[in-house]
């Protein structure tokens, strides 16, 4: 339950930051950080519980509310991406740096692919032949970089909120 309450407190704030502040801190449009995606992936990797998947629902809902695309697109994309992190996080070697990087790359790539696929299905004119691949790659790099930076703090927080006292 603490997991969900934490999500309810943090995710709306991050979604608003992603909408208000990050567009001005993107190095002239070159590096666009997806803060909510990074946090949801990190959280699922650090705390691969079923409740953590609800962060994807909440994050997607917030992103959709602040986006011009149809409602539901971010929910689906984030859930698919976070399921990968969640499954990887349940492994014993989930703390390995290679796994973290792989989850960051796979999660971000799958998020963008599902996102663009859903945009196309819902009638957006998506030019698949001329997708801004460079922008994708740069976004993946910055997302993975930030994910690796914040993962120790996220893991520490996950341990803190899941700690239970044992009466002897």
């Amino acid at each position: 339950m603490r997991n969900i309450i934490l999500g309810l407190l943090v995710i709306p704030l991050l979604a608003i930051f992603q909408s208000t502040l990050l567009p001005y801190l993107n190095f002239h449009g070159k590096f666009n950080l997806d803060l909510v995606l990074v946090l949801v992936l990190s959280w699922n990797l650090a705390y691969p519980d079923s409740e953590s998947l609800l962060w994807a629902l909440l994050g997607g809902l917030m992103l959709d509310a602040l986006s011009g695309a149809h409602m539901g697109i971010n929910i689906i994309s984030l859930t698919v991406a976070s399921l990968i992190a969640n499954l990887a996080g349940a492994r014993v070697w989930s703390t390995h740096i290679i796994l973290r990087i792989s989850v960051g790359i796979a999660g971000t790539t799958i998020y963008y692919l599902v996102y663009f696929l859903l945009l196309t299905i819902t009638g957006w004119r998506t030019d698949w032949a001329n997708l801004p691949i460079e922008n994708f790659v740069r976004s993946i790099i910055i997302n993975v970089f930030v994910m690796i930076l914040i993962l120790p703090s996220v893991r520490w927080l996950a341990v803190k909120i899941t700690q239970r006292t044992i009466d002897i």
């Binding site: 909408s19 567009p23 602040l66 976004s139």
Partner: peptide, 10 residues
């Protein structure tokens, strides 16, 4: 605010 997706111009 701006669109939360960097690929949509809103």
């Amino acid at each position: 605010g701006k669109d939360t997706s960097s690929f949509l111009q809103y």
